[in-house]
Design a protein around this nucleic acid. Structure first.
Length: 230
DNA sequence: GCGACAG
DNA sequence: ATCTTGTCGC
């Protein structure tokens, strides 16, 4: 497990953070299909907080995309680098997530983030931000529709409906289990939306949320507990 | 102007 | 995100 500090020059205000997003957004690549589902590695990243202690723990879990077997894991802890502000989530999570990714012994392949990519007020959510900084293909899978709208997908697993920001499609409400609330998929970097959804369906053989995020979630919570003991 | 709003 | 035990159900 590695320890990270807040990077020099990290935004200190919302205005600065939005300026960073506006600048980095130009580097997002949207014209690649992305890695074929079921091949190579798929990596889940997630973060847990202890606001009381000002500590954040991140985890990265690498799965074999064909079997969903875990092939590598890493964690990192650091200080909380930004308050939670809707639309600026990346500034709270990214330094520690980058450290966890760096600590992996295997290449991550496609990275699955908790949250959004293109589905973002300025079209630059956490998944897009992480993709631009690492160069890796990324997608976002969120549990809530944020401020976006969507029709209810048909009840069967695999059904989907556009996730809309006004008239613009920014992602997809994707039903991963029969009759269960959908997840909200959006493109991060170097992956198209159809491919992103195909990956998410392969990652949900049993539960609503992808195995990647389930495993990363439990690992970062454990790392947070272990960082102080309890 | 105010509230809502990924995690 | 987080506060939080047992409990109902497959």
């Amino acid at each position: 497990m590695t320890t990270v500090s807040i990077p020099a020059g990290w935004p200190a205000t919302e205005e600065q953070a939005r300026a960073v997003q506006d600048r980095l957004r130009e580097r997002v690549v949207l014209d690649e299909p992305g890695p074929p589902p079921g091949t190579g590695h798929v990596t889940g990243v997630d973060v847990a907080y202890d606001d009381e202690r000002d500590v954040v723990a991140a985890a990265a879990v690498v799965l074999d995309a064909a079997t969903l077997a875990v092939v590598a894991e890493a964690t990192a802890v650091g200080r909380i680098s930004f308050p939670y502000v809707p639309g600026l989530l990346a500034f709270r999570e990214i330094p520690t997530v980058l450290a966890a990714l760096d600590a992996l012994s295997r290449p991550p392949g496609l990275v699955v983030c908790d949250g959004y990519g293109l589905a973002h007020p300025r079209r630059f959510g956490l998944a897009s931000h992480l993709g631009v900084l690492t160069g890796l293909p990324t997608i976002g899978v969120a549990k809530n529709p944020f401020a976006f709208t969507h029709d209810d997908p048909a009840p069967a697993r695999g059904s989907a409906a556009p996730l809309l920001d006004g008239p613009e499609e920014v992602g997809r409400a994707l039903r991963t289990r029969d009759g269960v609330k959908p997840v909200f998929v959006s493109v991060g970097h170097r992956v198209d939306l159809d491919t992103a959804c195909a990956h998410v369906l392969r990652l949900t053989p049993r539960y609503r949320l992808p195995e990647t995020t389930r495993l990363a979630d439990s690992l970062c919570r454990r790392a947070l507990r272990d960082s102080v003991g309890r």
